[in-house]
Structures are given as structure tokens and as C-alpha cells.
Design a protein around this nucleic acid. Structure first.
Lengths: 231, 231
DNA sequence: GCAGGCAGCATTATCTACATTTTTGCGTTG
DNA sequence: CAACGCAAAAATGTAGATAATGCTGCCTGC
């Protein structure tokens, strides 16, 4: 596997035992992404510690890590907060994603390898077989988010820049927050087909078309969310 | 001031009192950037705590923040380390910087405002009046690094993307490490003139030329460092 | 004799519990 | 009604307990 996707809450690649801090980090991250913890909400150390059944210290470490990733806001002597969401921020985010993922996709296509292609096909297949749950069905789309992220990472996996991949992933985190706050923002539209189109253009080596389709998808999602949020 | 450059070790913008953790964060960051702490070196909690005269806890928090910024490597149950440097990583870094700062510069030029221009002129002026110290003179170029960073931030300040600016700054951190490990890698060449050329192209609204000059600068610096490192 | 492995010890990361400092909410006062 | 000050709440920091790692030296089997 030639891909180099940074693992979430990685402990270093080897089979290191995760510390309490790392476990709390992962759970906090998930809870923030999923909107379990609401935007603007204060994250009291004591409260969080109780929630996850650990002491204050590991919580503090987890929060400090997350603050560097902008998944929590830190105010010295005042505590930690779940960052607010706004339509304006979302638009800026989508714009930036198009720039960076577009570039990453372009480079990947230019550097195409067999492994890269295989990974795209494989991750697309997995994504296509994961149903999106409607809110009525319980709406836990953790699985879909994982597959979805894997697919997009496969697309940019050959761009040759650790940094670019890392940045794209940070923005995927942010985007995920917006999707979750409006569950019904989830595509009823045929997202499998959209992804297939992107994949095909990429595999055909048509960078411009692939980028355009990627952008279209992001902008379409943005439109859905805009409508959702304004309501 | 319309610019939106994330402050280092920011405490949130208001006049918040920095915590011990934040102070340690800033000092560790500096010491890592400047190579005071050597690549590959282990950062023992106890040792670092003694060094900065605080307890283990603030150190731990600082290290956790830095680990999310890739300014230290964290290995659960094993401790923290100063990341290794390598020529290959440097090349990848420079390449990615060109992509992102190039894009940011392009967008800034497209969105040009009076304030943006003023900031460039001002920060260039300040940079031009800060001499680079040779190693013999003590070689503390902290001042120059600050001014230099301010100038590059001014260039991209109107790009309209918080994220892009943040990413560029993270990469500036990384680049700074490489400059410091080979102090003599510091430009004896006329860096003021180079910066002036970039500024002029930017102010003239010639995005392509400005980008080209920016890239030239980065690649020239890379060449110097390559020569330096191989020796 | 020597490589591999394993027990025991020293080191150090991590966590808990508690002390200290700062912020915040609220009632009082000028 | 604003300013002040006190008390409670919460963040931050310290110290020491706990647990994991890694090293040393000894033993075993080839």
C-alpha cells in the first residue's frame, strides 16, 4: 500500500497501546464531528472527564491536541469550546477545499500509478456498497463517512505531498461537521453516481473533467446545506 | 487591520493571560524552529519541565499541541521527539509551498484592496531594514524571521481563506527549521532585492510574474540548502 | 561460544488526587 | 445603574502513585 493517509489519533503506526488521552481524543473528535457536542458549547473539563470516565489530565491533553486542529477553541484560563459553525465559514471552507483537493487530484492524475488506480476502484466499490441512512433509520452514517473519506483520500493519494494530504484531511473534518448538523442535508440525490463520474474522469486521466466534477459535487453539497441551514 | 494572520500560541485575541502551558508551547516551538533542540532528539518530560521551570503537566500540554502541528512527533507510551529533517521532506515541502502560497498570492491579487497593498509596502519596508546576521555576528535572526514571515503573510493576506493562510503558516514553520540547521544557508545573496521584485509584481497586479518570482525565491533557497546539507 | 529469550530492575510516561489561581455570577453599595 | 467585592465554580498546576517500556545480565539451547 503506497498511500500515506495520516491515521486519526495515530499512535505512531506500530501497535502502540493507546493512552487514555488518545482514546479521549478520538471520542471527543467523533462527538464534535457528529454534532453530539453542539457548536458553541463549552467543554468543561470535569464534565468531559466524567463523560469518558477518566481524570482531568487526559481530557486536557486531548483538548489541547484538538485545539491545534481547530476542532475546539481554546481560551487560556477560560476553557475550551466547540467551535461555532456559520454559512460564511462553510463557503470559505468549500472554496479552499476546491483549491487544494483540486490541485491534489491534478497532481495525482499526473503521477498516476497502478496502485493509485487500484485504490480508487477499491474504495469506490466499498463506498458504493454503503447505504446512507436516513434520519428515520437512526441516521448513523459513521460507516459511510469512513468510506467516503477513504475514497477521496484515494483520489489524492498520489499527489506526492504529505502536507497537502494532511491539509485536505483537516478540511474534510470540518466539512463533516456541517454535514452532520443537518442530517437531512445528506444526499438523497444519487451520490454513488456522482462519485463514479469523478472516478471515471480520474482514471481516464482527464484532470480538468475530474476536477470539475469534484467541484460540482462540493458545490452541490454546499447548496443543499445552505438551503438546509437557512431553514 | 483587515488581515487575519493567526497569532502564534494565540490565547484568543483578547488580552488573556498566558498559561504556563502556553508559555512553554511558545518556547518549545522557538527552540525547535531554531534547532536549539536537535532533530531526532527525545523530549523527556522531566527534562523539559526543568529546562523551563514548570511542572510536567504544562509541558505535556504544550507537547500535545505541537504534536498536532507536526512540530513534535508523539509516540504513545514512548514520549515525544523532535522530528527528523531530510532533504526529501524539504523538497516536498517547498513544492507544496509553491502550490499553496502561489494560489494564495493569486487570489490576493485578484481581491486586492488598499489595505492589502499598504500592508505589503509596510512589511516590506520593515523587512528591508532588518539585517541578516551572519553566523559570526551571533546569528540570531529571530527578528528577521518575524519580519520575513510578516511580509509573506501580507502577500497572501487578501486571499480570503482562513484555512489557506493557516496552512501556509504551518509550512513556514517547517521551512524555518531547515533554514536554521544550516545557518550559513542564510542568504548572503540580496534577499531584499528579491523580495522587492515579488512585491512590485504583486502591486502591479501581475499574478503570474509575482508567482514566478516567489517560486524562484523558494527554489533558490532550496538550492542553497541542498548544497549546504550535502556538505 | 554464541544467538535468542526471558526475568527483574531502573527509567520515564501517564494518570489520579489535590492545591492553587483565575474567572464568573450575583448581591450590595455608592 | 455602574462599580465593587465576595463566594462559588472552574481552569490550571503540583506532587506523588501507577503502569509501561527498555535495558541488563543471566540462562538456555544450538
Amino acid at each position: 500500500m503506497a498511500l500515506n493517509v495520516p491515521e486519526v489519533g495515530s499512535t505512531g503506526g506500530r501497535g502502540e497501546k493507546a493512552t487514555a488521552a488518545t482514546l479521549v481524543y478520538r471520542r471527543l473528535r467523533q462527538d464534535i464531528l457528529k454534532g453530539e457536542l453542539k457548536p458553541g458549547q463549552k467543554l468543561q473539563i470535569e464534565q468531559v472527564a466524567t463523560r469518558y470516565g477518566v481524570g482531568a489530565n487526559p481530557v486536557r491533553e486531548a483538548l489541547n491536541r484538538l485545539s491545534s486542529e481547530h476542532l475546539v477553541d481554546r481560551h487560556d484560563q477560560r476553557g475550551f469550546f466547540v467551535p461555532e459553525l456559520s454559512l460564511e465559514k462553510l463557503r470559505e471552507l468549500v472554496r479552499t477545499r476546491c483549491w487544494l483537493e483540486g490541485k491534489a487530484l491534478e497532481e495525482s492524475i499526473a503521477n498516476r500509478t497502478q496502485i493509485w488506480e487500484d485504490n480508487i476502484v477499491l474504495s469506490f466499490h466499498r463506498l458504493s456498497r454503503t447505504r446512507i441512512q436516513t434520519p428515520e433509520e437512526g441516521g448513523d452514517n459513521t460507516e459511510w463517512e469512513i468510506k467516503h473519506r477513504a475514497f477521496h483520500n484515494a483520489l489524492i493519494g498520489a499527489c506526492g505531498s504529505f502536507w497537502l494530504i494532511k491539509f485536505c484531511n483537516e478540511m474534510m473534518d470540518q466539512a463533516e461537521r456541517y454535514r452532520y448538523i443537518s442530517m437531512s442535508g445528506y444526499p438523497r440525490r444519487d451520490s454513488v453516481e456522482e462519485h463514479r463520474l469523478i472516478m471515471e474522469a480520474a482514471l481516464d486521466g482527464d484532470a480538468e473533467l475530474a476536477k470539475q466534477r469534484l467541484f460540482d459535487q462540493y458545490n452541490l453539497t454546499l447548496k443543499h446545506l445552505e438551503a438546509q441551514i437557512e431553514a
